[in-house]
Write a protein that binds this DNA or RNA. Structure first.
Lengths: 188, 188
DNA sequence: CAGAGATTAGTTTGCGTTCACTAACCCTAT
DNA sequence: ATAGGGTTAGTGAACGCAAACTAATCTCTG
């Protein structure tokens, strides 16, 4: 994805706007004001508002932790989430963009993009879980879908709580505790 | 909360509307059409749109499973979620209303109501978890916040997936599997 | 006949978007 | 060096539309 300087500024502003005031405040007017420009100026850089949102989602996904690591099983999953934590700490506003997931999903304009993204993550994670079960580091007997929910559910909840709380607890520490607990519980 | 026949019809229609078309399609116009009435008619029954939404949230909370059961520890939590499952099966549209949580939270008009509701649930659950740890049925050593996330995170995820999938898997069976897994993992 | 409940026909507001236009900055050929 | 042509990034004004909401009016029904 090749973006101009200005396009990146606009996406940054959009993320900031959502973080501070919620998705329903992401209007062309507010967005333009955030950069200190008039509304039509935005149309020099994006065809329409939908393209702005699409680009934002895509960039969010692109910044997603590299899944091509050498690690296997739960270690790979842990590394994945730890990288996500660093991404959020580096750009905390992103946490609040996660809130809007449901909004994007229910909008047919973006639902395909969103569900594709989620399915990719899910497939990757189930593969890692299978590795863990095979190598005897994750207990067997729990269906893989259930396993997936057991891991991703709490992590997502943690990220959301962090965003909603105004980033006022130590995400790194708290996610460490969570992953430790998960690893412990899932051991055979 | 005392509601007239008509008021209940309106709230029902609102829930249906959100379920079928998402929160951004919950407009006075659509709502009126859903009941087969013109827009101003709604204002005979509610002062404004916000009051409709507030009432809907309140009724959702009211229909919440009775927390005053005789059960203790994980059994109480299990009973709570099983009751929620039955509530969702009885009125599946409610599952999709859960998607809008973030929308309600980010709207200052409703955020207080929503966060109050969530804090109440959290306090109740942490009390039950403490009972479980005390009676030795839940392993100790895991911070109660982490424990809370480990349980609620996956359940919420399951409910959301069920709603997003168009209720096309067996929620009762799947939630049974999830609660079984949780109980097993949390055993000392 | 009084009043609850519905209707018709608006108003206001804010949204995304387009229009015509301009100032500033490249090129390139004379 | 400079004038002409083209591009880039911006502006103010306006458009079309859909939203929430309202005033005035009609219509049953107890």
């Amino acid at each position: 994805m090749e973006l101009t300087k200005r396009q990146n500024e606009i996406i940054d502003a959009a993320v900031r706007l959502i973080a501070r005031r919620g998705i329903q405040e992401l209007t062309i007017k507010n967005l333009a004001a955030e950069i200190g420009v008039t509304e039509p100026a935005l149309y020099r850089h994006f065809a329409n508002k939908a393209e702005i949102v699409r680009t934002m989602i895509a960039r969010f996904d692109e910044g997603s932790p590299a899944a091509n690591s050498r690690k296997k099983g739960f270690n790979a999953i842990r590394a994945f989430f730890e990288a996500r934590v660093e991404q959020l700490l580096a750009e905390p506003a992103l946490a609040n963009v996660m809130f809007c997931e449901e909004y994007f999903i229910s909008d047919p304009e973006f639902s395909e993009q969103m569900t594709a993204m989620m399915h990719r993550h899910k497939a990757w994670m189930e593969a890692r879980l299978a590795e863990g079960v095979a190598s005897g580091r994750i207990r067997s007997g729990i269906p893989s879908v259930t396993l997936f929910r057991l891991i991703v559910g709490p992590v997502r909840m943690l990220f959301k709580q962090w965003g909603m709380s105004g980033m006022k607890f130590d995400l790194r520490a708290e996610s460490g505790r969570l992953l430790d607990a998960l690893e412990l519980l899932l051991k055979p």
